[in-house]
Computed example of a mutant assay.
Amino acid sequence: MKIVLTPSARQQLLDWPVTASQLPRIDANMSGGCGISVQFSLVLDEPRRNDAVIDCGDGIVLHIDRFTERYMEEEMAVDFTDDAGFIFGDSYDSSCTV
């Protein structure tokens, strides 16, 4: 699995107040009735057993639980804007892998 961070997403993550009990996590949220839609978000959360741990360099480490990992593509890009927050989608600049 490959996570690609834009410079703005990388900077935002560097500014987060990360502690041993509150780590950055990519979470999948399911919604919909007839058709299921998956929305991803970046949150601060406690580490979980069996998390995939992705070292993105610069001290940025992302956690992904098995449920979320099932819905992610082999490569996922993460961008950040002040208006929309973290945005998940196509490839961008720099990357990190599991």
Rank of each mutant, 00 (worst) to 15 (best):
V4L: 13
R10D: 09
S41V: 13
G57E: 07
G85S: 03
S91D: 14
T19H: 11
F80R: 00
P7T: 09
G35H: 09
D83N: 13
D58T: 01
R49H: 08
C34M: 11
E75D: 10
F80Y: 11
M1Y: 11
M30I: 08
L13N: 01
C34Y: 06
E74R: 15
D51C: 07
D45I: 07
F88Q: 00
I54E: 01
D65Y: 08
R10V: 12
H63S: 05
P17V: 11
D93R: 11
Y71V: 06
S95Q: 10
F88L: 11
I36L: 10
L14A: 04
E74D: 14
C34E: 09
F80N: 00
E46V: 15
T81C: 08
M1E: 02
H63A: 01
M1K: 10
A84E: 13
V43T: 05
V61P: 00
Q22V: 08
A84I: 13
R70T: 03
I64A: 02
E75Q: 14
D93A: 12
C96A: 15
F40C: 03
G57C: 03
D79G: 04
A52W: 05
Y71C: 03
D51P: 05
C34I: 14
D45C: 15
V38I: 14
V61R: 01
E73S: 12
K2S: 09
D79E: 07
I26V: 15
G89H: 06
L62Q: 01
S37R: 06
I87K: 07
Q39H: 11
S37Q: 14
A84R: 15
G85N: 01
M30A: 05
V18P: 02
A52H: 04
E69Q: 10
V38M: 05
D15G: 02
A77M: 15
I3F: 13
G89W: 09
K2H: 10
N29C: 03
T97Q: 10
I64L: 03
D83Y: 06
D27N: 14
G59Q: 10
M76L: 12
Q12W: 06
A20H: 15
I87P: 00
R48T: 07
L5F: 11
F80Q: 01
D45W: 08
D55N: 14
S31N: 04
P47A: 07
D51T: 08
C34V: 14
M1T: 14
I54S: 03
I87V: 13
A9Y: 01
N29I: 04
I60D: 00
Y92I: 12
W16Q: 07
V43I: 12
S37F: 08
S31Q: 05
G85C: 06
D65P: 05
L62A: 00
D93V: 15
G32E: 02
D79T: 11
V43R: 04
C56E: 03
Q12G: 09
D65R: 04
D45K: 07
